[in-house]
């Protein structure tokens, strides 16, 4: 268990970074793309202009960092929600593989998406 003991500060750092980024950045994305634009309150950006926006290297890095760290934020928080809320501490190793493994898989997929965009 020594390895796990050593890694908690690492996971906590990712959790904190992801929590901060998602707190600052996600609400505006949801409000615009999910609500204001579909309801016609704001004019929808055209496909081409949106595409060129995402093609910009800064946007790619932005999306990758935001998505990956948000996933690690989920992984760490949900790990403890499962421990505490459902009293599943005895399944610790499975939960860790599921949560951090899931976040890692999402990170790899996002990397492929933004590199091949």
């Amino acid at each position: 268990m020594a390895a796990k003991k050593h890694n908690d500060p690492f996971w906590w750092t990712l959790f904190g970074a992801g929590g901060t980024l998602s707190a600052f950045l996600l609400p505006v994305h949801v409000a615009l793309i999910g609500i204001a634009i579909p309801l016609g309150w704001l004019e929808a950006p055209g496909y081409e202009s949106l595409r060129s926006l995402v093609e910009h290297p800064i946007t790619r890095i932005y999306l990758f960092v935001l998505i990956s760290l948000s996933l690690f934020h989920w992984a760490h928080r949900f790990r403890y929600t499962l421990y505490d809320g459902l009293m599943l501490k005895h399944l610790e190793s499975y939960i860790m593989v599921f949560c951090y493994g899931g976040a890692l898989a999402g990170t790899i997929i996002t990397a492929i998406l933004v590199i091949t965009f």
């Binding site: 999306l63 948000s70 998406l113």
Partner: peptide, 17 residues
Amino acid sequence: VVAAYVILMMIQINALS
């Protein structure tokens, strides 16, 4: 919700590409 929405963002990037 944080995880669900960033997965939806991945879907958006994919659709856009």
